[in-house]
Structures are given as C-alpha cells and as structure tokens.
Design a protein around this nucleic acid. Sequence first.
DNA 1: TATTGTTATACTCTATAACTATA
DNA 2: TATAGTTATAGAGTATAACAATA
Lengths: 153, 153
Amino acid sequence: MTSTIDEVNYTVRVKPSNPDACAAWQLLVRFFFTHRATLPPIAAELELSPAQCHVLHLIEPGRPIPMRELAETLACDASNVTGLVDRLESRGLVHRRPSPEDRRVRVLGLTPTGSRLRATLVARMAAPPQTLARLSVEDQRTLVRILRRLLES
Amino acid sequence: MTSTIDEVNYTVRVKPSNPDACAAWQLLVRFFFTHRATLPPIAAELELSPAQCHVLHLIEPGRPIPMRELAETLACDASNVTGLVDRLESRGLVHRRPSPEDRRVRVLGLTPTGSRLRATLVARMAAPPQTLARLSVEDQRTLVRILRRLLES
DNA sequence: TATTGTTATACTCTATAACTATA
DNA sequence: TATAGTTATAGAGTATAACAATA
C-alpha cells in the first residue's frame, strides 16, 4: 500500500495550481451526487432502466448514430451496447439499420414510439431541482453564462 | 415525428416560468453527462466497480453509517446494499458492526485498508477536467461562489 | 405492528474472449 | 490486418417478495 500513498502525494504535488478549478469541480461532483438519485425513479416511471435512459437520450430524433459511437460516448464495451439495443429494439423503441457507406456499421435510430418516449423522458428530466430554482435570477444567469463557456470549449 | 414535436412544445408551454433555472439545469446535466465516463476507468484502476466507489466515497473515515442510511442516499433497495457491502467486506475494505442503541441496525465503517483505498479514490477524482481548468480564474471563483450557495440551501 | 437487514430469485448491466462479416 | 458488431459466459448491480430479529 506504500505505492498507494505515494500516488496520493504525487497527485497532490503535481496539481497544487488551480485551486479554484479543483474547488469548483468538487462542488460540481457533490451537487451531482446529491441529485444522482433522481434518475432511477424517472426511469422506473417510464419502465426503463437508467442505462436505457442514457441510450434513448443519446439517440436524437432525426440523427441516427452508429453503435460504435454510442459505445464510445457511454464509455462501455461494444457488446454491452448490443444488449442494450436488443432490449430497446424488442420494445419497438429503436431500430438498427445498415450503413450505406460501410456495411459493417449499424446505425441506430428512434422509432415513432421511441421518439415519443424520449420526449417524455427529456421533459421529465428538464425540471430543475428546487435548490437551483431557489437561486437568485442573477446567479442563475451567471451560472448559465459560465456553463455555456465551459461547454463550448 | 409530429407527435414528438407536439410533446416538446407542450413541455415548453407548461414550464415557461424559471427559464434560467431550467437552462442552468440542462447545462449542468450536459456537463455531467460529458464527464460521466471518467469514473469507470478510475474504478477499474482501483479494481472497484463504480457502485463500490460510491459506497466507499459515502463511508467517511471515522464516521460510521447505518446500512439503511446508505440505501437511502444511494436511492436503492436495502437488499442491494447487503450485496454491495458483502463484496467490500470480503475484500477487507469495510466492516459491519451492530449498533449499540438499536440491535437491528448494522453500522458500516472503513478498515485501515479501506480508508487508504478511499483516499486514493478521492485523490484520483479530485482532478478537475481540462474544460474547467481552462476557464478564467474569475469565472472559476464565481462558479465556486454560486455552487456553495447552491449546496448550502 | 413497524423497521432493519438478509435471503432467494429474476432480470439488467457490464466486461472478456472468441467469432463473423466486412474493410 | 484491422474494425463493427454479435454471441457466450461470468460476475456485479438492481428490485421484489418472503423472512428473522428487534423495536
């Protein structure tokens, strides 16, 4: 376990700069951990698993996506995506279609039913938690401005 | 596809209040979804599952926690916690002890090994993503200020 | 009676390894 | 040879229901 302690010290040593970024990151992690519990109930309500919600969320209407890309975005193995899509497909929410350019590739799209369910999911997830809604409008706007900057980089 | 558009419009119609909070929330969700993929590799590196990381993270050194409380914080069934703790306990990271006050309750604590592993985990998660580090220091500080306000409410 | 935690069960999630079919 | 996806397999995560011990 010496190596473990060394590793900790190493981390601390190489990243002493940027204390504000570290503080912000810690707070963001804590905020999301606090709200992590909101997805499972929403998923259950729609008779989906949290993982299926992620997939449905990532397949945008009218924007088919190769399975490979989905696996990369989810940071999971390709075989996992096969199973996830199998279950969504058997429920008629998603379809696989061969890519015209590369016949190895399967492109995923939403069925009309899947598209409707996705819209419901997005709507159910859109409501901000009360803590966020209770911030002053000025803080909310500042937050939006900074987060936009964060996400466009 | 028409129904999808209708449903989206409906959502827009019924939640026109608090547009800034909604926008902030959407951005936060997007930010975290973008960084969601960072935990599994860190977990794998420490030979833990993501769920086990959550548990380890929630058991603070010197602050024993009843299993029931853990189940509530994780928003999962108590039987699930039994399994999670079984595996952590069999690896010598966590221990169960009967509560002196209520003999139905089992209180969880970290072993020395578990405590060290938790420290490594926390250190590995502490590094902010580059996007955050690239923000101006002023934005970082503003973000910290607002997030603190958000979390103390 | 109600609550804490466990067990049994069933299903989903997940990775690894071996495979097929394309490129 | 390399890549996209599948299958088989094994283990972990998860909820439900039934249960024991305790309150």
